[in-house]
């Protein structure tokens, strides 16, 4: 776990791929992509559906450990329209029932057109970024003056390379010039995109149970 201070706020960057605000008892995750297996399956590619349960179990454990009051999901909770099938929704509803926190979903590009269906479930949705103190929570990066924007969508990872060895690892990405913090994707079966490490930015790399900072 790594603690950082930005704009006067203390954030805990967890190796479980989440951010915890202890002062507010608020937990933040992004890019869960439930139902991605089912999407692939319906187009002829057999990805096992156990991924969904593993993802939800991880989130459940995290909630049991920290007992947050609020859980924000920064977009892409569901992967596509093929995800809104009984077995996937069932898993989600069981999770909701097991966890005490208030859950708010800020919709992302993958679940934006599922709004109508989502509104029929008991999931609290927001189609716009949400302000919490001087945090701006969104799915896609939306930096704004005076706020720390915490978002998802990018699925950041870092590519460390030298002549003899290389590693690609998921990370939290902090861009200090824009006051932007991007979360790693939480979902089990999600890919990642390399972020460039430049001046005034930092990557907090997740490896095993540790969060290691990389900044010059």
């Amino acid at each position: 776990m790594k603690e950082i201070d930005v704009l006067g706020m203390r954030l805990q960057l967890l190796a479980e791929k989440a951010v915890y605000l202890e002062s507010d008892q608020t937990l933040l995750v992004a890019d869960i992509h439930l139902g991605k297996s089912e999407t692939f399956q319906s187009l002829g590619i057999p990805i096992p559906n156990q991924v969904n349960q593993t993802t939800l179990d991880r989130l459940k454990q995290l909630c049991f450990k920290l007992k947050p009051q609020k859980l924000f999901i920064l977009g892409d909770l569901f992967h596509s329209k093929y995800a809104l099938v009984d077995e996937v929704l069932e898993g989600w509803l069981q999770f909701q029932a097991a966890v005490d926190a208030e859950i708010i979903l800020i919709v992302g590009n993958h679940d934006r057109h599922l709004i109508k269906t989502l509104k029929n479930t008991s999931i609290q949705c927001s189609t716009h970024p949400v302000e919490v103190d001087n945090l701006l929570l969104s799915h896609e990066p939306s930096p704004q003056l005076g706020f720390l924007n915490i978002c998802g969508h990018i699925h950041p990872c870092v590519h460390l390379k030298e002549k003899l060895d290389q590693l690609r690892l998921p990370c939290f990405y902090l861009d200090r010039t824009q006051n932007l913090l991007v979360l790693p994707s939480f979902g089990e079966f999600t890919g990642a995109y390399e972020v460039p490490l430049k001046r005034n930015s930092a990557a907090y790399v997740i490896a095993d149970d540790c969060v290691i900072s990389l900044e010059r």
């Binding site: 399956q41 319906s42 077995e87």
Partner: peptide, 15 residues
């Protein structure tokens, strides 16, 4: 046909 040997792991699979 079914996606694999694990029963129930590929409910939406069709090929």
């Amino acid at each position: 046909e079914k996606g694999g040997k694990c029963l129930g792991a590929y409910p939406r699979y069709q090929k």
